[in-house]
Write a protein that binds this DNA or RNA. Structure first.
Lengths: 239, 239
DNA sequence: TCAAAAGTGTTCCTTATACACCCATGT
DNA sequence: ACATGGGTGTATAAGGAACACTTTTGA
């Protein structure tokens, strides 16, 4: 078989369908983590599932994710801002999807709860499934996600926990750039799902933050100072 | 557009070519990390590149990796043993490959140097490229790998370093199940590329190992005890 | 007996933890 | 004034780094 003709003609190779699936993770106030699910139409209609979509011609994976979120969940480009989904894993079991040979590239996208509530009310067929003991609690007593998507959620949560073990809100689950240490700690407790004393937390995070100079007001108790994430260069103790 | 027909007919969606690329990483004795490269034939003939291959019909990614290594590098199934490649990232830039729309799933496979030498001599067009200051030193003064594969190598090394920061030789780069602490430390120093005092290293690793009871003999100096990796259950200090 | 490598004791320092305490605001 | 949450001082403990030291072999 002449080499030149093989390399010139990629169409000789079989090509799988490629899909993206997204675990949109958020943290409602005072609640544990939650994942955005939508009610499917078409195949497996009525079942709750992660938003996903097939890849278009020469489309970037990140773009397919954004489009899927816009179409299936009303999460427009403006709401997503510049957030970029993170690749988790490619699921390649040929039996995974009974419609054919489908590779699915799983993604994680962290989104503040405030952004998600902007679409939750407007659309029916959208819900936030809470994560209880590392298992999703789906609406309608549904036990599990289709197409083995439970594994995507498990990986997403693991990944998120790893990233929140060190740095202050690295995925920006708090909606704003400025926050108090209490807000920050609340978010970390929700993500990590394990205790972390407030004074230890403070001393761990302080070197990674810079004061804005402002303080909160209005609530009970002493006003809290506002911080923002410091430039990574500030991270080592080289001041 | 009727939903049923859309979901029933996956062939309506455009499908990309999907390839796998593998960074086979090893650690020659007394040397830094090295990556297996081969001289391409066909497209970009003569250039050194990571082994890779297009996916076959309904093939698992791990299987495609194994086959690519067997075909391009002579690394047969027996040599690979039960080692399973790890997914690193999907590269999706549509301009990445000028032959067409190609997604590449990058993989990492760690292999003991003893296994790699079994094929290095037998085949021409195979080489080990050393990693010097996180850059590959390729044969023939070639500056970089094609198709943006340098990024694959960078990610592979990062991933490997992360896994070797804690556990004893988690990828089994040492060929054998039993080893001395010196061997183990040598491997970790090569992977991590940073100093680690031998006594600190010993105290860090000992709780993760179990003694075999045997000792080495023949070399200079005091005989060293042989260890094997302990069951993960032994890891926490719950003895 | 000496070089070389294995292995241990001990000190110093950094960092997490826990607890107690002081501070500043709204009611 | 006092309840409430923000913020700090300090003691304790665990773990890493460094250094000196002992142990056991081959030459």
């Amino acid at each position: 078989m002449p080499i030149a003709s093989v390399t010139a003609d990629l169409s000789a190779f079989p090509r799988p369908n490629v899909a993206v699936d997204v675990a949109v993770v958020t943290s409602p106030p005072f609640g544990p983590l939650a994942v955005l699910v939508h009610r499917r139409s078409g195949d497996r209609a009525g079942q709750w599932a992660l938003p996903g979509r097939f890849l278009r011609e020469r489309e970037l994976l990140a773009h397919a994710v954004a489009t899927a979120l816009a179409e299936k969940c009303g999460l427009s480009h403006e709401i997503l801002d510049d957030r970029v989904p993170r690749q988790l894993h490619v699921f390649d079991d040929p039996q995974r999807d009974d419609r054919g040979w489908v590779l699915s590239v799983a993604h994680l996208l962290a989104l503040p709860h405030t952004e998600i509530t902007r679409v939750l009310g407007g659309r029916s067929g959208l819900a936030l499934a809470r994560v209880v003991e590392d298992r999703l609690v789906l609406p309608n007593r549904q036990r599990r996600l289709p197409y083995g998507q439970d594994e995507i959620v498990a990986r997403a949560i693991l990944d998120l926990r790893r990233s929140y073990a060190e740095l202050p809100d690295p995925e920006g689950l708090i909606g704003s750039e400025e926050f108090t240490l209490s807000q920050l700690r609340g978010m970390h407790l929700a993500v990590l799902d394990r205790p972390w004393q407030s004074d230890t937390f403070r001393r761990h995070m302080l070197p990674l933050l810079e004061e804005t100079g402002d303080v909160t007001t209005g609530g009970p108790g002493r006003p809290a100072a506002l911080y923002r994430r410091a430039r990574p260069a500030t991270r080592p103790r080289s001041s």
